[in-house]
Nucleic acid binder design. Structure first.
Lengths: 335, 335
DNA sequence: CACAAAAATACAAACGTTTGCACAAAAAAC
DNA sequence: GTTTTTTGTGCAAACGTTTGTATTTTTGTG
């Protein structure tokens, strides 16, 4: 009970496989009558084209590789969803891999995508990825590559990136406007473009307001709830911080809990702003002021850029900055 | 500048492609010397096997299809992650599709997976899916199929399901123990196994405690924050409800907000329990009592079951129930 | 050293498509 | 009624592997 092939259809109809192939692919070089017959027979036999044979013959596949640090992160899963929403109607399928934030896995995943002869790759780097030599295997093979969110200018091809700088700048400026003056910054590894850009926005806002940039106010390795909590306690015990700009909402939760654990109040004693607008942000008490990233737009743009490259050859834009939005809520407004 | 094939390696070494193939696949029928030479040459040429050619020849692929309603849902994205974590080291890749809760898309996605000759499918049905005839195209082709979470006993093959009944039973029993007596239930379409089972658990707990099952206390189509809000207001205005068991955490948020909007307090006036333990549940005020599902376990078991079927032929277990845990927090404890 | 057995390699077909080219039949032009 | 053009099919090769069988080479035995 094997699966039907075009050969089966051909035999049943007394024509050749080539005719069947042409009929099914909508070629003009086949009569209306045979086309109809072929289509009916295909339906009758439950024919499903074998994409492997097709891809092998055509020398390309309709599969797109997607590589993200983790699929179960709010931002990434939404980007994936958006990408899928564009790619699927266009006839592409999505092969998804995770790096789990490890460079080793990232390399492995790229190998796997290469082996699968994907028509293109949409990826966001792991936190560990500082060197981008392993990407060369992709560009060498002439596989279109789109980077998003965590991206390096070292790598050729389009980059779809959130406006981290402006987001951070707006966030800190807002804190300053609210009357906070000694603003700390919890962030991740500054080797990652995302965090370095947010840091840059933070510095810029401080400079603009003629506030001093104090080294002890900037704490790396603080992106989880736990590390956010620890760093914040440490911060409050050794400095006179009156506000914290967190490079992520998770560390913001930790910060808020640390503040409250020391008997202080958000936003009255310490103001807090996060980044990413995780679903829980507006459900916290106090509601968390944060920077909203448009994951949908990022995925959308990335998918469209890729399709353009694949179908129309190379394209122009190198870097596309997706605007972000500051959502002012309760955690940053002194009463 | 084409990609290297085994033929290139063969030519460079003066052997035949078959020898190269056997050398690379670790066959015993090849000398240590040639194997080493082949491996070196492969490395030198940057050879990557063409999985399409391989799959075509072998008549099977190492790609697993995964079909979920949406990837950007906490539960599903975690299941995907768990599945990937098992499947990847085992040499499989994941082709991911979404149904967006629509039957039409579910059918389309299954077609796509069939065309890609996936080695197996792991899926969870859309909300609309009441009839499972379209699954026959899968089982007819003898493709191993694992259902998880939203699953039907009509379909042959393993089902990995959360213990929705017990979860609901524990939740409602807990509410009763806390002193609540007029317990309402917000739920989704009862045609979906997940919701019908939770409803069954709810009824069972009430019966056990000799509490009446009132029709007006059970409200369908209440799974989002918005519908949860509306249904709850309606409920509180027309009945004497003193607790609500929500079949999801999102409707629980809506319920809490509705309760508070009417000037009542959770848990003092009305107790609330959710389902799923979304990340925000413990961050709400009051912290939401809810039922924790083990997405990791579900994905893990599903992936392992699939591998077992693929590699060792059919297997025994038809339905595997993954235990859930009641997380008692603040929203359900009268002071 | 001859001969059998074992080991290593070669040969060739197959997987299911696609596609350039050839060819026949029908239609159009003269 | 012949020639040219158009239209519809067929033929066969190719895509890069894998694998059963045949063949060669090596090793071992008497």
């Amino acid at each position: 009970m094997k699966r039907a092939t075009i050969i089966d259809i051909a035999k049943a109809l007394g024509v050749t496989p080539s005719t069947v192939s042409r009929a099914l692919s909508g070629s003009v070089r086949v009569s209306v009558a045979t086309r109809k017959k072929v289509e009916e027979k295909a339906e009758e036999l439950g024919y499903q084209p074998n994409v492997m044979a097709s891809s092998l013959r055509r020398g390309k596949s309709d599969t797109i590789g997607m590589l993200v640090p983790r699929v179960n992160r709010h931002f990434f899963s939404h980007v994936i969803s958006a990408v899928e929403q564009i790619l699927n109607p266009a006839g592409y399928n999505l092969l998804i891999c995770q790096s789990y934030e490890r460079l080793y896995n990232e390399k492995l995943a790229l190998q796997a995508l290469l082996k699968n002869r994907v028509a293109g790759i949409i990826m966001s780097h792991s936190m560990e990825t500082g060197n981008f030599d392993h990407i060369k295997s992709i560009t060498n093979e002439n596989i279109p590559l789109i980077q998003f969110d965590r991206a390096s200018a070292t790598v050729a091809g389009p980059r779809i990136i959130n406006d981290n700088f402006s987001g951070a700048y707006m966030a800190v400026k807002h804190l300053i406007k609210s009357g906070y003056k000694r603003i700390a910054h919890l962030t991740g590894a500054l080797s990652v473009n995302v965090y370095s850009e947010r840091y840059r926005g933070y510095r810029y806002a401080l400079e603009e307001a003629c506030l001093p940039l104090l080294e002890e106010y900037v704490l790396e390795e603080a992106i989880t709830k736990e590390t956010g909590f620890e760093r914040t306690r440490q911060l409050l015990e050794t400095t006179e911080t009156d506000a914290i700009f967190c490079a992520g909402d998770f560390s913001a939760i930790g910060a808020i809990q640390a503040i409250q654990s020391l008997g202080m109040k958000v936003p009255d004693d310490i103001g807090v702003v996060g980044f990413a607008n995780e679903p829980f942000a507006e459900l916290l008490t106090p509601k968390l002021t944060t920077v909203e990233q448009n994951a949908y737009d990022v995925g959308n743009k990335a998918a469209r850029a890729l399709i353009k490259i694949i179908e129309k050859g190379s394209l122009i834009t190198e870097e596309e900055i997706i605007p972000v939005r500051l959502l002012v809520r309760e955690s940053s407004i002194k009463f």
